[in-house]
Nucleic acid binder design. Structure first.
Lengths: 336, 336
DNA sequence: CTGAAAGCGCTTACAG
DNA sequence: CTGAAAGCGCTTACAG
């Protein structure tokens, strides 16, 4: 493969000059530029990014970490879609995306540092946000550029992009109350995730606002999967006073919950609403109501925040909250 | 950040020795090893992968190209799942994954060469296979290590992993014939993709074997999306003799086709079978029959083939075909 | 078993 | 406007 010396020789200039032409430096005469470009084309020259990284101390690559138990990684359309958003924005700015999929927080931690310190990516995007996260503190302490999809703790100097998860919980409850429900339960995701905490907070706030009774058995926790939703719904139905409506903190869970209702012929007895707007849930019987999250935008915005820092030196933590939207379908579109 | 000289100084050895310890070279005395390891730990040393790549002429990174019109990229669970398979295998061997998403063949071509020649990834995995592909020829000519998910043309010296798409088409028809159908149509994907050609070939072969009439209007082509399936089904239903069963070359298309049937109350008049086993299609009404593709395994096998070449110098093109499996559900589980 | 030296392919002050 | 030189952080024959 041709290197910069080959090009220089063919063009009759020094390697420095070739480097300047590649970099688009202004102080090169048009004739020299033309000769160099011609030589580059003849030799089909691509500058070696690794050599360049070494001296520039920048790789033009961003690390993305998807942290989820393997089985769940992509069962849920959230991750592919967020990746698409990130990829689109990185691509627009000529950055490459180094993808790492991890299953435990420890693995995530190690992978992230390896990416930054060994692979030397210019920054990192984390796609899961946990409540206590040693990784965040290490990244802050090391002054590594990174953006979190989700949110950090109050006052932590971290850049993040989140959707309004508290509002998501509130919207769901408001909608259900509007349909006449009073006994409303929550099937929530793992409580070490901020997304679960926030949706629950919104749920509780709205329940309190409407002065609705909220027995502790009405809040069930499970995995962000069909199975998690299935098991949770089974438990809710064993209660002496089962709920008439259930807010599921994720569409996959809502699908699992729906399976229980269908098996027992209860689909029109218990209202069901999820979160995410997974494309296929609209086609279920009944079509699932949901709160639509701007997943692509979460990804592209995270990438944009990161690149603003890397390219334009935009400094200091920035936080962005994107709005979500209620989508009413048959699973809740009836009055108690 | 600490570099190899810092470690050497602290351990009281030369950089060469540190390098050998990092590489796990055998000819270093245990005492020296211990001192070096201690220094590495104290300084929290990570070797700079870019510097290493430069001299080793290997990056320990593999490029993965997902080539699909943006909207479809991940609507279909194929890509996330194949990525998971690739990622798992790469991770096991300490390779990083550089992900590139492209929309046109030209973009794919350029991105692929950039990855290999500029970013210097050690090899590439292509996840879409087209019928005439200039890229393949360039990769072969350049002797770049790569593996295709799908297949190349007959006799092309290319490594690939594919599922048995001809058998997929045959299985679908056999199943439908077993249920008493004679008027069977095909809703196929874009014909520039080998996957579409092969499924169609299987479809045709089986139709011929059973001596069934196959008017040209019974083969409709569309995008691998819900919309594509929707439009194709509408066309089939305008025929004077509409089919009693339809083989859709992809689950997303089958879902679109199902929407048409539901709108017209024809779900029990026309049998429907898809391909892929998208998790949610089992929950539709009626649950969709399908042919299950081992998508994760396609990804992990592709990565394994590539790494066999990179790590163990396994040379020469190799081809692997993975079996698919008929999954019968309500959408076809009735007799005409 | 260990070190000094050369070199991987670039970029970038410095000098002219 | 252009070039010679030093250096980015490693690895690896070569020598001992």
């Amino acid at each position: 493969m041709a290197n910069i010396k080959d090009v220089a020789r063919l063009a009759g200039v020094s390697p420095s000059t070739v480097s300047r032409v590649v970099a688009g430096s202004s102080r090169i005469s048009p004739e020299t530029q033309a000769r160099v470009r011609e030589a580059m084309k003849v030799l089909n020259y691509y500058p070696n990014a690794n050599a360049r990284s070494l001296v520039r101390r920048a790789t033009n690559a961003v690390g993305v970490i998807i942290a989820r138990p393997a089985e769940q990684a992509f069962a849920n359309p959230f991750f592919p879609e967020v990746l698409r958003g990130i990829g689109a924005e990185l691509h627009r700015h000529g950055y490459d995306l180094v993808l790492t999929m991890t299953t435990t927080p420890e693995e995530e931690h190690a992978a992230c540092l390896r990416l930054l310190k060994q692979r030397r990516v210019d920054g990192v995007i984390l796609t899961s946000s946990r409540v206590h996260d040693a990784l965040l503190e290490e990244l802050v302490a090391g002054e590594y550029p990174f953006v979190l999809i989700g949110r950090a703790g109050e006052g932590q100097p971290v850049s993040w992009v989140n959707n309004d998860n508290v509002a998501v919980g509130e919207m769901a409850v408001e909608h259900l109350v509007g349909r006449g429900h009073q006994r409303i339960a929550l099937i929530n995701g793992p409580e070490e995730l901020t997304v679960s905490l926030d949706r629950r907070q919104g749920f509780r706030q709205a329940m309190a606002r409407y002065k609705l009774d909220l027995p502790s058995e009405y809040e069930v926790e499970g995995e962000f999967t069909k199975d998690g939703g299935y098991r949770a719904m089974v438990r809710l139905l064993t209660l002496p006073q089962p709920p008439t409506a259930v807010f599921c903190a994720d569409d996959a869970m809502a699908v699992g919950a729906l399976m229980v209702l269908k098996e027992r012929g209860l689909t029109r007895q218990v209202a069901l609403i999820g979160v995410n707007d997974d494309p296929l849930t609209a086609l279920l019987d009944p079509p699932l109501s949901t709160v639509r999250i701007p997943v692509f935008d979460l990804g592209s915005t995270a990438a944009r925040l990161l690149l603003d820092g890397l390219q334009h030196g935009v400094t200091g933590p920035r936080q962005v909250v994107l709005p979500s939207q209620l989508v009413v379908r048959e699973s809740t579109n009836w009055t108690l």
